[in-house]
Design a protein around this nucleic acid. Structure first.
Lengths: 227, 227
DNA sequence: GCGCATTTTTGCATGACGTGCAAAATAAAG
DNA sequence: CTTTATTTTGCACGTCATGCAAAAATGCGC
């Protein structure tokens, strides 16, 4: 990679970092694009060469994708043959997609978590990113099933997958309301990743149970005795 | 209702209608707030007394809620006792919530459909509205189950419910890509509502089948014969 | 109808956002 | 070093959005 490209990437990252840091410190509307640009010692106009808007610099580069390996295995019908387990594995590979491995992915996650915690108005934009991912997932499910665009299942599966991702993030994020967000710059630990995967599995199982067991089980579980 | 309030409401609706009409005609960035205000013969400043942004005037007043009746029945454990069927009925009551009945709700739906068709950038904001509805649904599911905030099921159910709504809209909207959007001002027909409910039921069943039948059925259905 | 309190509309000033354009600066290639 | 391609920058411009105070409209008691 030439000096030119490296420099560009560095500037981009610097702008992103500065944007996030300043917004976490002062709040979204107490940070202007000029502030961010000044922080990186670059003109305001240059900021807009890199990002179309202030928000774009904050949201980052979209959600990760499944790793190439994860995709290939999933499309081929693996690793287990059970659609649920395989979808789960497929989604798990999202963590391995980012250039610097799962540490970078976790750091990104935490950054987003802190950001939405501070600025809930960013949620819609995050959601929009998920919607993009949805397209890609649907395509992979369709490839696995070998069906055309008229089959509902790929879209349904993709919808469920992103729903699941959203829910897992919600759970992680939710914690106790008001709980201090983790330090955005702390190193990502393996425990952290394990916790995420665990939460993901739990959600997955809950969802499965919700459907397979819902018809009979839920009403009888109602504690008010009116079932 | 006094003259004052009636006039305010009228202005609000006029601004919304003008905004939607102009944007459908010319596209989002070919319509300024000034244009909209001028159309209603009101100052630009007044526009911002009613709406916080141009988009807000377009998106409208958030998603409908379940009707009071629908909520009460659902929370009491009815109408059938089967969680799925009941959730479906609960969601169906969304159509009856709007002041002028389902016709108004359908017209709203169609308006949104046309808008999103013309301006996909509005999708995220629509989604955000659904997220609001999610809270309310989760609360109702929790009330029905009589459980506390630590139970995953209410949030899960709400998530699924909104997922379902999104998917149904996507299906209706999708139609054939490029298909001309319906006239936004055409009267809402009973057939239209029936079609929506049918689509909703189909999606509901597909989802149910997806889960209950997925583990065994899907792999064997794969047409490549590798199962 | 008339004056008075309240609410709504309006104009004006202000700051930030975002884009197009052309000139200056910088890197790459010969 | 010269030439070429890319990137940065400054500037002008239009739009978005908010705060504030004056003006207009409304509702109400008389």
């Amino acid at each position: 990679m030439g000096l030119r490209e490296r420099k560009k990437l560095a500037t981009r990252r610097a702008l992103q970092r500065a944007a996030v840091r300043l917004v976490l410190e002062r709040g979204l509307d107490q940070v202007t694009v000029d502030d961010i640009a000044a922080e990186v010692e670059v003109s305001t106009r240059t900021f807009f060469n890199y990002f179309g808007s202030k928000d774009e610099a904050l949201i980052g580069d979209g959600p990760p994708r499944a790793s190439e390996e994860g995709r290939a295995v999933f499309i081929a019908g693996g690793p287990t043959g059970d659609p649920f387990a395989d979808l789960r594995a497929y989604l798990g590979s999202f963590l391995d997609d980012s250039p610097e491995g799962y540490r970078s992915a976790m750091a990104d996650l935490r950054m987003r978590k802190s950001l939405v915690h501070r600025e809930p108005s960013l949620v819609p934009q995050m959601m929009a990113r998920f919607a993009e991912a949805e397209q890609a997932i649907a395509a992979d499910v369709a490839a696995r099933l070998g069906t055309g665009p008229d089959d509902l299942r790929p879209r349904l599966g993709a919808l469920l997958a992103t729903t699941l991702m959203r829910f897992t993030m919600q759970r992680l994020q939710g914690g106790e309301p008001g709980e201090a967000p983790a330090e955005p710059d702390a190193p990502a630990t393996a425990e952290e990743r394990a916790a995420l995967e665990r939460s993901f599995d739990e959600t997955f199982e809950a969802l499965r149970a919700f459907f397979t067991g819902a018809a009979g089980a839920s009403p009888s579980e109602r504690p008010d005795g009116t079932a």
